[in-house]
């Protein structure tokens, strides 16, 4: 029997519903949701059929081998893929049930609510203060920047280290400090969601530990989605984990990513329901 895409999606989301109803009747509100999400770069389909529900005040981790499309999916959540001219999104990405790719949606407004921290710390070549104040300034804020910068740096656990040198260049900070500065910069616009694209991959274990602590502290006020190559990190910090993998296309040797399993982190790591997930988390591939 031919199974249409719609049927398959219905079944998938029905399955997710079942899991949640069975295990977590008090699950928090859905902040981000993808339905049937495909991302193309030109004619090439980089990711297919992703259905995910990101819940408020949780940390959701996206793991999987290289090329599985986890970063691509993350970049759909704040329309960062718009910057790549050939990128095209099919399906839906909903934020509080509003279609982020709807006709009248302004990507700039989306990014003010859904902030992002990148793989490589990328402070602007400006002062520490100007880095944090950048988002509020481009949003038109002129007053109260001193307070806002201080609060943002405190949230990012960086204030004590930099309070005496706010006018110094951000490029003089260490890698771990720079990444916390980038978190402070993202928090300064008071977003609802924080997307983190392998935020610790360029950092040493101590700096990584600080970022992870910080994530735990701020998750009560924000919804966090983190892409990570590091399975231990996903296991340590996240509430839910989405495991992606890549499949080789028949027509070309490029890989298309897909979502294999999405569940509470505990289940993904101790009792995965898909053989591919088990093989990955136990280190047998990837």
């Amino acid at each position: 029997m031919q199974i249409t895409k719609e049927q398959r999606v219905d079944e998938t989301s029905a399955m997710i519903d079942d899991i949640e109803v069975r295990e977590d009747p008090r699950a928090s509100e859905i902040v981000l949701e993808t339905r049937d999400l495909d991302v193309y770069y030109g004619a090439f389909r980089a990711v297919r059929d992703v259905g995910l529900r990101i819940r408020a005040n949780e940390i959701t981790a996206m793991i999987g081998p290289s090329g599985c499309g986890k970063s691509t999916v993350l970049r759909c959540f704040n329309r960062m893929n718009d910057l790549i001219e050939s990128a095209r999104v099919e399906g839906e990405v909903r934020y509080h049930d509003v279609d982020l790719y709807g006709d009248k949606i302004d990507a700039v407004e989306v990014r003010r609510r859904i902030g992002m921290v990148f793989q490589k710390p990328n402070p602007f070549p400006k002062s520490i203060f100007d880095n944090v104040a950048y988002g509020p300034r481009v949003a038109g804020q002129r007053r109260g920047l001193d307070d806002l910068v201080e609060r943002s740096l405190q949230r990012a656990a960086l204030w004590d280290e930099v309070k005496d040198r706010l006018k110094d260049s951000a490029l003089g900070l260490s890698g771990g400090q720079q990444q916390r500065l980038c978190i402070a910069r993202a928090l300064a616009v008071d977003p609802d969601v924080l997307l983190m694209d392998e935020p610790c991959s360029a950092l040493d274990p101590i700096a990584t530990g600080r970022i992870e602590e910080l994530m735990q502290e701020i998750k009560h006020d924000y919804t966090i989605v983190i892409v990570t190559h590091n399975m231990q990190q996903a296991a340590r910090v996240s509430d839910r984990t989405a495991f992606f993998t890549a499949e080789v296309n028949e027509e070309s040797d490029r890989r298309t990513g897909l979502l294999v399993e999405y569940d509470r982190t505990q289940n993904i790591f101790s009792n995965p329901s898909d053989g591919r997930t088990e093989a990955y988390v136990t280190g047998r591939f990837g």
């Binding site: 960062m80 700039v108 003010r112 402070p123 602007f124 070549p125 950048y134 481009v138 949003a139 993202a186």
Partner: peptide, 23 residues
């Protein structure tokens, strides 16, 4: 101009004009 700088700017809600002018 490195892509990281543009991304950082867009990532906090800067418009294209903001990004060009300030970064």
């Amino acid at each position: 101009v490195p892509r990281e700088i543009r991304e950082a700017s867009y990532g906090v809600g800067a418009t294209q004009w903001d990004t060009i002018r300030t970064n």
